[in-house]
Amino acid sequence: MLIAFLTDIHSNREAFSAVLAHAAARTKPVDRFVFLGDYVGYGADPQWTVETIAEMVDKGAIAIRGNHDEAAVGAAHGMNPAAASAIEWTNRHLDKAALRFLERLPLEVVDDDRLYVHADASAPDRWLYVIDGEAARISLEAAETRLVFSGHVHVPAIYGLSNIGKLTPFKPTPGVAIPLLAQRRWLGLIGSVGQPRDGDPAAAYATYDTHSAEITFHRVPYDVDKAAEKILAAGLPAGLASRLHAGR
């Protein structure tokens, strides 16, 4: 089975559409889409984004909850001013069905030997950032599955944990299949579709082949200008538009 992981779309319709088209153009078709949270916030197309994901979930996709999804239906506590103002705007631009969809998202899903969780698996509702080896170890050790796939940090990375507790961090090269060796446990941080922060403005996602146990990270260039213009036209903070160009 080929799984496509998409995360941190953040209402970026242009990036999300480009990734869906990229995934559809593959010679080996994607069997299952897994969305790892944060569908809204920052970008100008929350309603379309949530509707699209909801339709895909009806057809068998899996979607879990991110902190922005939670904030959009409740309180935006603990967020920086730009994020909080985007969340307040987002809430006003989602219809009832979309809000209900976000409200019902699970915090985590176990699928065979894989755990899907937006942030740190040891405390999924605390939204901690897995930014280094120590955080990766805590997240992996808290999970009971061999593999953990997460988003939240907006930077693609892999961490491998050996059976004697040694941790190997790794920065994946786009397009190169990486075997998640059976004798280790692995944490895959997928990178963001709608707001990449590793210096490359192209949208990020990954595919995982359950048969060969190989994960491949992808980068998809999209119409950044259009996504940025829409953010400005919506009256959202200008910094949310400019950071898309920088990929920061």
Binding site: S162, T168, I178
Partner: peptide
């Protein structure tokens, strides 16, 4: 060079 180096950390 494009795959995790298991020996490096070990």
């Amino acid at each position: 060079l494009q795959l995790p180096d298991l020996l490096d950390e070990e």
